[in-house]
Every structure is written in structure tokens, then in C-alpha cells.
Design a protein around this nucleic acid. Structure first.
Length: 575
RNA sequence: GCGCCCGUAGCUCAGAGGAUAGAGCACUGGCCUCCGGAGCCAGGUGCACAGGUUCGAUUCCUGUCGGGCGCACCA
């Protein structure tokens, strides 16, 4: 794909400012970054604050702004700049803005905002990663939808993403599960109850283990047997895994999320000895309290545990093996790990180990953390069985959507499909609409609220725009010569300004690994559009005006659909 | 004890070295002979506290307080 050049007023203004001798004191990039959007539209569309220059030139910033106002050359894209106090304010020529932005969208359509920055380079994204034999609950939602969204965002920017579901299919919890199964379970009960039964056994184990610590010993032993290839243990492990995967798949199907690799922790088993010996060869391993560790004291971190005293592997061991494997296999330029913030130290530790092993790509390993999900003040806890199942949440949301459709739009075709898209969209948007680092408290009431800043609000706005376009059979390629001059209403101009910002927002979301920047943006766009929709009738007599407004509607519809797509949310044409 | 994250409106959250700090929910009142009322419009209160850096701090730094998490054989 050819790289698309998007209209960038910061570039235009920077060019203009660079013509001024006084501005030579700052380099181009500095000027570009100083430019800011004024807090109030009345002031202008883009501002250059003169404080930095004031310091360098030892001159009153008011005077600088004033002088710049007088000496700057004209630009076809900008009105004459206005000095307001220590700021030089620029205003976009609305006609030019509208023409450029809307034509770009008419031309690029569902690729509006896309770029070819990645040039096909690989980015590995490790996300979702639920634990086998545990229920898929709302606590897994963040990793799953954030990772999925980053996948789509980086793809859109021209990278080739590799989505890996690093399943928690190895570790001591299987020892616990087998112990519990042997003591309190049965084949029939597991076949009947599936994950629910596995979870019951898991919870039971923890209850009993509090009274009887020898159970932990037994569990460790069972896990050891799995690691050593014991037939019975391995068969049970496989069985539990299959049961879990089937259940997880139902959730992924609802979310329409796919992975390029399902290589979980167990996948790296045969690579662990090589990792250990490489660490040994590089003199990084030390024995401590019977275990093998990499000492990280000089980096002010606790040691990274590589092997337990019984010789079995640990989380870090497998992550290191996985990173080496992924670098070999995918030669990534970045590897993202989308996990809870509680694991920050763990990642800092083993990233450092990779660095100490002499791999310069350690810098390309990036932890993308997110906050906790609480349940009405209490922590989610699989061990205590206190969870909200994600599938249940999604199904409830779908049900509720169906009820709303039956009430408001009973003749809608494909109701079930639309209900799924909207119900799931509500849940996904909820998880992606806040800064990922914040802890969130799950509440049914909020998760099922479809008013205000929600996924359904965006989808509804999109559907209404589609509805207008459908009425006239709008085809974008037939309207390239529309007349932008007639889009003079304040509401229309605000929509255009917001549309203009979209490519910039995608870049920011990628740079910060923060899909919520797109969520917030889409809410803003929808709000602007809904004002326009309210204030300005589109299907008016006057053909020139109608055409221009239709183009605007099309541009919004397209941008909403693209943005929702980047969040992993469907944009139905009717709902 | 050491370390990390978070404290913005009644609630959920945006914002971020600068020009009067914004939305949604909830509450109240308007708006459908008109492109879809899951919508639009109007109505109030707020940067945990104390220092510091700066021409300027809600934003950066330090400390205090409050909440969450992590720190050796779980992941």
C-alpha cells in the first residue's frame, strides 16, 4: 500500500513559522511540538505559545506574538493569525479543511487513518492468556480486548501482527487439580460439569489445603509427574485442557477474536533445558537456597527464579524461552505483553535477564499493563469461586439488547446477529473506554447501560448515518466534486475538525498502546455528529447543500466504522 | 520494611507545564405532523494535603495521608 499523506496543520504552521528569523532559535521539531489546540474554539484552531521564545530572545511574549502576527506570510490553508496575549492563534480556512478532509475520506474510505509505517515488520502481541481449568471471567476481558485492539491498530499502521494466546496450560495448578480430582472428583462429574466442575474441584482444593498443608505437597508431586511425562498425569492434563479450550472458544467466537498462535506455556517445555544451559554458559545462574536464580541485586530487583529446588521450571523460565523462540520464529520489531499491572516486576526482571544474556532486542520487549477488575468492592477470586463469567456477561448483554430491539425496532432483520454485535460491543467498549492502567469496579448496572458514552451510542450514531445514506443510495465515488463551501454551520465545521483529528489519534493510540484514546475520540466524534444531525437537516431541497452534507454524513459513518473496527467492535448498518 | 500504580464533580471517567478544568451516569425541566428519541438542549458542585522547581503546576519533583498491588520456588 502506498503511504497516504494526511492533512497536518501542525506541519503547515511549522513551515510558516520556520520562515521567521527569530524562530531559528528553535529547531523544527521543537516548534512542531509546541503547537497546541486552544482551550476555546473562539481563540482559534491551533496556537503557538511564545513563552519558550520569550526566554531565548529575552523579550515579552506578547510582543513576540504581535510581531509574528504582522510578519508571517499568508497561507492558503490558514486565516491571518491573531495574537492573543502571549499566544499566536491560527484558524483553519474552513473551506480548505472541509475539502481536504472529506476528499481524503471519500478516497480512502475504510482505510482512513491507515499508514504503511510498519512496512510489513512483525509485532508479536501476547494477550488474553487465560488459565486452563479456570473459568474465563471478566478479569480476562481487559487483556483480551486490549490486545485485540492493539493488534488491529498496528495492522492498520502497516505492521504484520502475530497474536499469541499464551495459554496458562502448565504449572502447579494442574497438580492441585489432579489432586482434587483424585480425591473428590469423578470422570462422570467432570464430563457433565466441565469447567464448572473443574472450578469446584479447584476451590475445594484451596479450602482443604488450608486445613491440611500436605495437600500442597501432593499437588507439587503431581505437577512434577506431569513434567516428567507420567502417562496418567499427562492424560488428565490433556483432558482438562481440551475441556477448557472448548469453553474459551465460545467466548472468542462471541467476541470474534482469533489468534495466530495458541502456543501456551506447555509449548516451551522442551526448550527449557536449552534456556537453562544458555544462562549457565553466560555465567548468569547462581544457586540460592537450593534454587537456581539470576541475581539482579545491582539492578535493585529481587532475583529472577529460573528453577525450583526440585528442578521444575517457573513462570519466568517459560517466558524467557518463549521470547527466544518468538524472536527466532517471527523476528519481531516489538513484542507486546498485555497483562495485569501486578506482573510488572516479573516483566522487568526477565526483560533484564534477556538483556544480560546479551540480546539487544531486550529493548523491544514491552509490558502493556492494565489495572484490576474488582467486584463491588471485592476482589475477583477463582479460588473462592467469586467471579463473573465473561460468557454470562456477554449473553446477558445480548439478551438485553434483544429486548431493546423488540421494543424499539421490532421489524429489524437479523435481530439475533445485531443483538450480538451490539451487546458484545457494549461490553467491549466498556472495557476499552477508560485508561487501561486504572482499576475498575465491575457492576452489572454499568456494564448493561446503553445510554451516554457507550458502545451502543456509537453504533446507534453509525446506524442513523447509514440510514440517511441508504435513503438516497449514496455512493462515495459519485460525489468527489462536492462543494465544501456550503458547509458553513458551526455544527458541521466542528464535525469536520473532529474528523481531521482521526489519523493523529490512531498514531497516539499506537504510541501509547492505549486503545482508549480511540474510544474517547469516537465518543467526541459521535457527539459532534449528533449535534449536527439535530441542527442540520441533510435531505434538503437544495442539491449542492444536500450533497455536501451527505458527504459529511458518509465521512462520519466511515470514520465511526473504522474506529469501532480498531476497537474490535462491529458497526451494524441497522439496529 | 522496600518498590510500583492510583487519588479530578454524588458516582464512573477525560484532560495535562500554560489562556475561563471537561464528558457521561444519576436528578430536574424542555424537544418527535421533521433524515431512527439507544438521540438533542438547558440546569450544580471539583483537581487528597504540604512544600519545591518555574514567568506559570491540577499536570513535573519531594514528603504526608488514603486506596490497590508486588517483593524466592504460584502465574
Amino acid at each position: 500500500m502506498r503511504n497516504i499523506q494526511y492533512l497536518d496543520y501542525r506541519e503547515i504552521v511549522t513551515d510558516l513559522l520556520c520562515t521567521q528569523p527569530d524562530l531559528n532559535k528553535l529547531d523544527r521539531e521543537e516548534i512542531y511540538n509546541l503547537l497546541e489546540y486552544p482551550p476555546d474554539q473562539k481563540l482559534g484552531d491551533l496556537a503557538f505559545p511564545c513563552f519558550k521564545l520569550s526566554k531565548i530572545l529575552r523579550k515579552d511574549p506578547h510582543v513576540i506574538a504581535q510581531e509574528l502576527q504582522e510578519s508571517l506570510p499568508a497561507s492558503p490553508y490558514l486565516e491571518a493569525p491573531v495574537a492573543t496575549g502571549p499566544y499566536l492563534n491560527f484558524r483553519f480556512v474552513p473551506e480548505q479543511l472541509g475539502k481536504k478532509v472529506l476528499q481524503t475520506i471519500l478516497g480512502t474510505r475504510e482505510r482512513y487513518g491507515a499508514r504503511s509505517l510498519g512496512q510489513g515488520q512483525n509485532i508479536v502481541i501476547d494477550f488474553s492468556a487465560p488459565n486452563i481449568a479456570k473459568p474465563f471471567h471478566v478479569g480476562h476481558l481487559s487483556s483480551t480486548v486490549i490486545g485485540n485492539s492493539l493488534y488491529k491498530i498496528f495492522n492498520f499502521l502497516g505492521y504484520n501482527c502475530v497474536g499469541i494466546n499464551h495459554l496458562g496450560d502448565w504449572g502447579t495448578q494442574f497438580g492441585k487439580l489432579i489432586t482434587a480430582y483424585k480425591k473428590w472428583g469423578s470422570q462422570a462429574a467432570v464430563e457433565k460439569g466441565l469447567i464448572k466442575e473443574l472450578m469446584r474441584l479447584y476451590v475445594k482444593f484451596h479450602e482443604e489445603a488450608e486445613k491440611d498443608p500436605t495437600l500442597d505437597e501432593e499437588a507439587r508431586e503431581w505437577f512434577n509427574r506431569i513434567e516428567n511425562g507420567d502417562q496418567e498425569a499427562l492424560a488428565l492434563w490433556k483432558w482438562f485442557k481440551e475441556i477448557s479450550l472448548e469453553e474459551f472458544q465460545r467466548v472468542y467466537d462471541l467476541l470474534e477474536i482469533t489468534f495466530d498462535s495458541m502456543a501456551g506455556e506447555s509449548f516451551y517445555n522442551d526448550q527449557l533445558p536449552a534456556v537453562v544451559s544458555e544462562l549457565k554458559d553466560k555465567n548468569l545462574l547462581e544457586e540460592s537456597e537450593g534454587a537456581l536464580i539470576v541475581d539482579l541485586e545491582q539492578f535493585e530487583m529481587p532475583p529472577c527464579l529460573i528453577l525450583k529446588k526440585d528442578g521444575s521450571s517457573l513462570y519466568a523460565t517459560r517466558d524467557i524461552a518463549a521470547a527466544l523462540y518468538r524472536k527466532r520464529t517471527y523476528d519481531f520489531v516489538k513484542a507486546l505483553y498485555v497483562t495485569g499491572i501486578a506482573q510488572s516486576l516479573h516483566f522487568r526482571q526477565w526483560f533484564k535477564v534477556i538483556e544480560l544474556m546479551g540480546y539487544d532486542w531486550a529493548k523491544d520487549l514491552i509490558h502493556v499493563p492494565f489495572g484490576w477488575v474488582n467486584l463491588a468492592g471485592e476482589k475477583l477470586s477463582t479460588r473462592k469461586g467469586k467471579v463473573v463469567l465473561l460468557e454470562e456477561l456477554l449473553q446477558t448483554a445480548i439478551q438485553k439488547t434483544l429486548e431493546i430491539i423488540n421494543e424499539k425496532n421490532p421489524n429489524l432483520e437479523h435481530k439475533e446477529e445485531v443483538a450480538r454485535e451490539v451487546g458484545v460491543g457494549a461490553v467491549v467498549f466498556g472495557a476499552l473506554s477508560v485508561n487501561r492502567i486504572k482499576d475498575v469496579t465491575f457492576s452489572w448496572e454499568e456494564a448493561l447501560n446503553f445510554d451516554g458514552e457507550t458502545g451502543p451510542y456509537l453504533q446507534y450514531t453509525h446506524a442513523r448515518a447509514c440510514s440517511i445514506l441508504r435513503k438516497v443510495g449514496f455512493k462515495p465515488e459519485e460525489h468527489l466534486e462536492f462543494e465544501p463551501k456550503v458547509l458553513t454551520d458551526k455544527a458541521a465545521l466542528n464535525v469536520i475538525k473532529t474528523l481531521y483529528l482521526f489519523p493523529e489519534k490512531i498514531m497516539a493510540a499506537a504510541a501509547e498502546y492505549e486503545p482508549s484514546l480511540i474510544s474517547r475520540y469516537l465518543i467526541d466524534l459521535a457527539q459532534q455528529f449528533n449535534r449536527f444531525y439535530h441542527d442540520c437537516p441533510v435531505l434538503v431541497e437544495e442539491q449542492t447543500l444536500q450533497e455536501a452534507r451527505l458527504v459529511l454524513v458518509y465521512a462520519v459513518k466511515t470514520t465511526l466504522a473504522v474506529g469501532l473496527g480498531l476497537l474490535g467492535i462491529k458497526a451494524p448498518e441497522r439496529m
